[in-house]
Amino acid sequence: MEQATVKWFNAEKGFGFIERENGDDVFVHFSAIQGDGFKSLDEGQAVTFDVEEGQRGPQAANVQKA
C-alpha cells in the first residue's frame, strides 16, 4: 500500500486524483473508497491505497482514509 494526499475530489461526479509522493497523480473513483456510507474524499486528506492498471492507466484501489 502507498500513502499519499488527495489532490482533488469531486463528490458530485464521484472521482478525483491522489497525488503520489513521486509527484505522479493517480485517478480515484468513489467505488474504490473503503467504508460505509457516503464515499467521498477531501482535498489534502491523507490516504492509503493500492494501484491497479485501469482502462486509462493507473488508478487507485482499496482507498482508506489515513
Rank of each mutant, 00 (worst) to 15 (best):
M1C: 13
M1D: 08
M1Y: 11
M1K: 15
M1A: 13
M1T: 13
M1N: 11
M1S: 14
M1F: 12
E2P: 09
E2A: 10
E2M: 13
E2Y: 15
E2F: 15
Q3L: 14
Q3C: 15
Q3T: 14
A4L: 03
A4M: 04
A4Y: 06
A4R: 04
A4W: 06
A4D: 01
T5R: 14
T5K: 14
V6I: 09
V6Q: 01
K7W: 03
K7R: 10
K7M: 02
K7G: 02
W8P: 01
W8V: 03
F9N: 01
F9W: 15
F9E: 00
F9G: 03
F9R: 00
F9V: 00
N10A: 06
N10F: 06
N10T: 04
N10D: 10
A11H: 12
A11L: 09
A11V: 12
A11W: 11
A11I: 12
A11T: 12
A11G: 08
E12C: 15
E12A: 13
E12R: 14
E12K: 15
K13P: 01
K13G: 04
K13I: 09
G14M: 02
G14S: 02
G14R: 01
G14P: 00
G14K: 01
G14Y: 02
G14C: 07
F15C: 07
F15W: 15
G16V: 05
G16W: 05
G16K: 00
G16T: 04
G16R: 01
F17L: 05
F17W: 07
I18M: 05
I18P: 02
I18V: 05
I18A: 02
E19S: 15
E19Q: 15
E19T: 15
E19Y: 14
E19W: 14
E19N: 11
E19P: 02
R20P: 03
R20C: 08
R20F: 07
R20N: 05
R20L: 08
R20D: 04
R20I: 08
E21A: 14
E21I: 12
E21W: 12
E21V: 12
E21T: 12
E21R: 12
E21S: 13
N22P: 08
N22T: 10
N22M: 09
N22E: 09
N22Q: 10
N22S: 11
N22L: 09
N22I: 10
N22A: 09
G23Q: 09
G23H: 08
G23P: 03
G23Y: 07
D24I: 12
D24G: 11
D24T: 14
D24N: 12
D25V: 13
D25A: 10
D25S: 11
V26K: 02
V26Q: 01
V26M: 08
V26F: 05
F27K: 01
F27D: 00
F27H: 00
F27G: 00
V28P: 01
V28R: 02
V28E: 00
V28C: 07
V28D: 02
H29R: 05
H29M: 06
H29K: 04
H29C: 08
H29W: 07
F30Y: 13
F30V: 06
F30K: 06
S31R: 09
S31T: 12
S31F: 06
S31D: 02
S31Y: 06
A32P: 00
A32Q: 08
A32K: 08
A32F: 05
A32M: 05
A32C: 07
A32D: 06
I33M: 04
I33T: 03
I33G: 01
I33C: 07
Q34A: 11
Q34S: 10
G35I: 09
G35N: 07
G35P: 03
G35Q: 09
G35H: 08
D36M: 12
D36P: 12
D36R: 11
D36A: 12
G37D: 06
G37N: 06
G37K: 06
G37I: 06
G37E: 07
G37H: 07
F38A: 07
F38G: 05
F38D: 07
F38S: 06
F38T: 07
F38V: 08
F38Y: 11
F38I: 08
F38P: 10
F38K: 08
K39W: 06
K39P: 06
K39I: 06
K39Q: 09
K39M: 07
K39G: 05
S40Q: 10
S40I: 11
L41V: 04
L41K: 02
L41A: 03
L41I: 05
D42Y: 15
D42W: 15
D42K: 15
D42V: 15
D42E: 14
E43Q: 15
E43T: 14
E43V: 15
G44Y: 05
G44K: 06
G44H: 07
G44E: 03
G44C: 09
G44N: 07
Q45E: 13
Q45D: 13
Q45Y: 05
Q45K: 03
Q45W: 09
Q45A: 09
A46W: 15
A46T: 13
A46N: 09
A46D: 08
V47P: 01
V47W: 03
V47E: 01
V47C: 05
V47N: 03
V47D: 01
V47R: 03
V47M: 03
V47T: 03
T48D: 05
T48W: 14
T48I: 12
F49H: 03
F49D: 00
F49M: 08
F49P: 02
D50Q: 14
D50F: 15
D50H: 14
D50S: 14
V51G: 01
V51I: 14
V51Y: 09
V51C: 09
V51L: 12
E52M: 13
E52P: 01
E52R: 11
E52H: 11
E52V: 15
E52A: 10
E52C: 14
E53F: 14
E53I: 15
E53M: 15
E53Q: 14
E53V: 13
E53K: 10
E53R: 10
G54E: 04
G54Y: 06
G54R: 08
Q55W: 14
Q55R: 15
Q55M: 13
Q55A: 13
R56L: 10
G57W: 06
G57R: 06
G57E: 03
G57Y: 04
G57L: 04
P58A: 09
P58E: 06
Q59P: 04
Q59S: 07
Q59R: 12
Q59C: 07
A60D: 02
A60H: 02
A60Y: 01
A60P: 01
A60S: 04
A60G: 04
A60V: 03
A60I: 01
A61S: 10
A61F: 10
A61T: 12
A61L: 09
A61K: 13
N62D: 02
N62M: 07
V63R: 02
V63C: 05
V63A: 03
Q64T: 10
Q64E: 09
Q64C: 09
Q64P: 04
Q64S: 10
Q64F: 10
Q64V: 12
K65Y: 10
K65G: 08
K65L: 13
K65D: 08
K65M: 10
K65T: 10
A66S: 12
A66L: 15
A66K: 12
A66N: 11
A66I: 15
A66Q: 12
